[in-house]
Amino acid sequence: EIARHLEAYPGIAEAEVLLHPLPAGEALVAYIAGDPERCGDAEGIRDFLRTRLPDYMIPARFVPLSQLPRTPNGKIDRGALPLPKEVRPQTPFVSPRNPVETTLAEIFGQILNVEKVGVFDNFFDLGGHSLLATQLLSRIRDAFQVELPLRTIFEAPHIAGLAEVITTARAGSPAVQPPPITRVSRERRRIRRVTKPTPPSPPKG
Rank of each mutant, 00 (worst) to 15 (best):
G44V: 01
V29K: 02
G44I: 03
A171D: 05
P89I: 02
G74K: 04
V176P: 03
S95V: 12
V194C: 13
S95W: 10
E43C: 09
A80L: 09
T134N: 09
V176W: 06
A105Q: 04
R38T: 07
P202F: 12
R38V: 05
F108K: 06
D55Q: 12
T91C: 09
Q67G: 10
A143Q: 07
R188Q: 13
P54V: 03
G40V: 00
G128E: 04
Q177E: 15
Q135R: 15
S201W: 11
L18Y: 07
E16L: 14
A169R: 15
L68Y: 05
P178A: 15
I191S: 12
R190H: 14
P174T: 04
A169H: 10
R170L: 06
A171N: 11
Q177C: 09
L162W: 02
P59W: 08
V114S: 11
F62C: 03
K204T: 15
R188G: 10
R97P: 01
G11L: 00
I45F: 02
L126S: 01
D35E: 06
I111Q: 04
I107R: 01
A143L: 05
L65T: 02
Y9Q: 05
L136Y: 03
P23N: 04
N122E: 04
L131E: 05
E155S: 10
V117M: 04
Q110R: 15
V94T: 12
R151A: 11
P99D: 08
I2L: 08
Q110S: 15
A15Y: 02
L104P: 00
F62A: 02
A8T: 12
D41I: 00
A15N: 00
H129N: 09
A30M: 03
F48C: 03
P180G: 05
R188P: 07
E101K: 06
K116N: 11
I140D: 01
L49R: 01
L132M: 08
P72I: 06
P92L: 09
P202H: 11
A13L: 13
V94L: 12
D142Y: 09
T71A: 05
V117D: 05
I166S: 04
A3L: 02
D41K: 00
Q110I: 11
V29D: 00
Y31L: 00
R61A: 08
L6G: 01
V114P: 01
T195Y: 14
V87D: 11
E1M: 14
L6N: 00
P180A: 08
D55I: 10
E14C: 04
S201V: 14
P72Q: 08
R52P: 07
V114F: 08
T198M: 13
P178D: 15
P199L: 13
L28H: 07
L83H: 14
E26S: 13
V17F: 05
P84E: 06
G172V: 09
H20W: 12
G34I: 00
K116G: 08
L112I: 04
V146N: 02
E26I: 09
V165P: 01
G109V: 07
A133C: 04
